[in-house]
Design a protein around this nucleic acid. Structure first.
Length: 380
DNA sequence: TATACCGGGCTCTGCCATCCCG
DNA sequence: CGGGATGGCAGAGCCCGGTATA
């Protein structure tokens, strides 16, 4: 199989490196026990607190920062002799943040106060070249302070923008990337390059001929790919090929289409959900081949948690819809449980016949459903 | 003209471990 | 050796409407 060969092709650079680093970190994980969150103070903690810069701590308290939270997250910051909390606050205020927001940001990511005014100014300017307005940037900083403040490396940020643009991503793609997956820009450019190389290698191994177009296409389809490990992406691609029994050519079509949406899922989650969905659909009388075809046509169903998936299927079956109707229109699973329930109830009131009229009415947009429902009811 | 098909828009952090440098 | 920088992980859907088609 082509993907198996990939390990050999890219093994020396991308894939092998990733793999070994993960193995060591997992091993370490198993033997490390953190006591950082213990409620009772140990002597070591008391000693640690005593080393804190008391002026800084009281400044932060006045700003409204949650010191306990800050201490829990980045204890080292509270010991620093030189910090820039005042200029940080002034800077963010000038961008439209409230005092409460600023306190919240520092509580969640204390290292923010180690950034100088010059740094903040420069970085904001660069972000603004992509996102345009202050409020767009502020929204992200509020949502995830870490993504804005974690790295001090401006050159790397600039390099990332150049690199991502060189892939053919449009300004619109870049702004979506920065708004939704800001980590893409604080990760080292080398890492982004590795992932892009990995994607190109996958594509070439599967027989593709225009790797640059492929990468641009797949990243704009799923903007979270660059913040996932190649280990995860590879595991998911391998799994989907074997679980869905796709040829290289079919896999290529799949991951360039709807398949791209699910490549970033946690690998165990995708495996678990696949097994659960298969089991549930088998239990209502679907064949394995039908299920496979259905998942290929609508892979987003693997996004649903087990409970959510089972609940939806049960509601549909109880309403008198048969398994084949569901498989023919799997996008009905895209609709929320509440919406399905509400519509089934409405339709029961007018004795809607799913066998005769089909189930596509359940997937309409809200306004289209209402219009259709009204027409059906009036014609009764 | 109603329905089917399909693409795309929202959305997506915060914690932990290791590496690395002063 | 401590702390900053960086990578990796778990987590878990829904909706709208343009256009093709019958």
């Amino acid at each position: 199989m082509a993907l198996k060969g990939l390990i050999r092709v890219t093994g020396l650079c991308v894939y092998h490196m990733k793999y070994t680093s993960v193995v060591t970190s997992n091993r370490a994980l198993a033997t490390t026990v953190s006591c950082r969150y213990s409620c009772t103070k140990l002597p070591a903690e008391i000693q640690q607190q005593s080393q804190e810069n008391m002026t800084l701590v009281s400044n932060l308290e006045i700003m409204g920062v949650d010191i306990t939270m800050a201490r829990m997250r980045q204890p080292g910051v509270l010991k620093r002799m030189i910090t820039h909390e005042e200029s940080l606050a002034k800077f963010l205020l000038s961008k439209g943040a409230s005092k409460q927001t600023i306190a919240n940001i520092v509580s969640r990511y204390p290292r923010a106060i180690t950034r100088t005014h010059e740094h903040l100014h420069k970085k904001w300017e660069i972000w603004q070249s992509i996102l345009k307005t202050d409020s767009d940037i502020l929204k992200i900083v509020e949502r995830s302070p870490e993504s804005f403040f974690r790295s001090e490396n401006i050159e790397n940020l600039e390099e990332n923008i150049i690199f991502l643009s060189s892939l053919g991503l449009t300004p619109k793609d870049l702004s979506r990337l920065l708004a939704k997956a800001p980590r893409t820009f604080s990760n080292r450019t080398e890492l982004n390059k590795q992932i892009v190389d990995f994607l190109k290698d996958v594509y070439l191994c599967l027989g593709g001929e225009t790797p640059q177009d492929f990468v641009r296409h797949i990243i704009s389809k799923n903007i979270f790919l660059l913040i996932r490990s190649t280990k995860r992406l590879k595991a998911n691609i391998d799994f989907l090929q074997s679980a869905l029994q796709l040829t290289d050519r079919e896999l290529l079509v799949f991951i360039q289409g709807h398949g791209a949406e699910i490549l970033d899922l946690c690998h165990n989650y995708i495996k678990k959900n696949f097994a659960n969905a298969q089991q549930k659909l088998l239990s209502i009388g679907c064949s394995e081949a039908e299920i496979t075809r259905c998942i290929i046509s609508c892979p987003s169903m693997l996004y649903l948690s087990h409970l959510n998936f089972v609940t939806k299927i049960d509601i549909l079956v109880e309403a008198g819809i048969n398994s084949h109707q569901i498989l023919e229109r799997p996008r009905v699973l895209d609709v929320s449980v509440d919406t399905i329930k509400g519509r089934i109830k409405d339709l029961a009131d007018i004795d809607y016949d799913y066998q005769a009229l089909g189930i596509s009415i359940l997937e309409l947009s809200k306004s289209r459903f209402e219009a259709r429902f009204k027409k059906l009811r009036d014609s009764k």
